[in-house]
Simulated assay, not measured.
Amino acid sequence: MGPVPFLLVDDLEENLVSLEALLKRDDHLLLKARSGDQALELLLKHDVALALVDVQMPGLNGFELAELMRGNERTRRIPIIFVTAGTADGRRFRGYEAGAVDFIQKPIEPDVLRSKVEVFFELYRQRQRLAAQRDELAAQAEALKEAATHKDILLREINHRIKNLFSLTAGLISLSARPATSVAELELDLKSRMGALARAHELTLPDFNGAGDSGSSATTLSALLKAIVAPHEHSDGPHVTINGSDAPLKGTALTSLALLLHELTTNAAKYGALSNPAGHLAIEVSAADEQLSLSWDERGVPTLGGAPEREGFGTKLEQAALRGLGGSIRRDWRSSGLRLELNIPLEKLVM
Rank of each mutant, 00 (worst) to 15 (best):
L190P: 03
I173L: 10
T169S: 15
T169P: 07
D152T: 15
P110I: 10
R70G: 06
I108Y: 01
R161K: 11
L113K: 01
V183L: 01
A200F: 09
E109A: 05
R156G: 03
I173P: 01
F93E: 15
I108T: 00
R114H: 07
K191W: 04
E109C: 06
G71N: 01
E73L: 13
I108L: 12
H160N: 10
A98R: 06
A177T: 14
S167M: 01
D102W: 14
A132L: 09
G195R: 00
F166V: 14
E118G: 10
E118I: 15
M194I: 14
M57S: 03
L168S: 14
A180G: 12
R70E: 06
E109P: 00
P179H: 04
M69P: 11
T181R: 09
D111L: 11
L175W: 02
F93D: 11
M57R: 04
E64V: 08
R91N: 15
I78P: 08
L60A: 02
H150I: 13
K145D: 00
A66N: 03
A184V: 13
D89V: 15
R193A: 12
L144E: 06
S167A: 14
R178F: 00
K145M: 00
N72L: 15
D189I: 03
A85M: 04
I104Y: 09
A66W: 02
E97K: 14
R114Q: 13
Q126V: 15
H150N: 10
R70K: 05
P79N: 02
G86Y: 14
E142H: 00
P58K: 01
L137K: 02
G71P: 04
A88K: 08
R94P: 10
R91H: 14
L175Y: 06
D189N: 07
A131K: 11
G95K: 03
L188H: 07
G195Y: 10
S192I: 05
A180R: 13
R156Y: 01
R92H: 09
L65W: 09
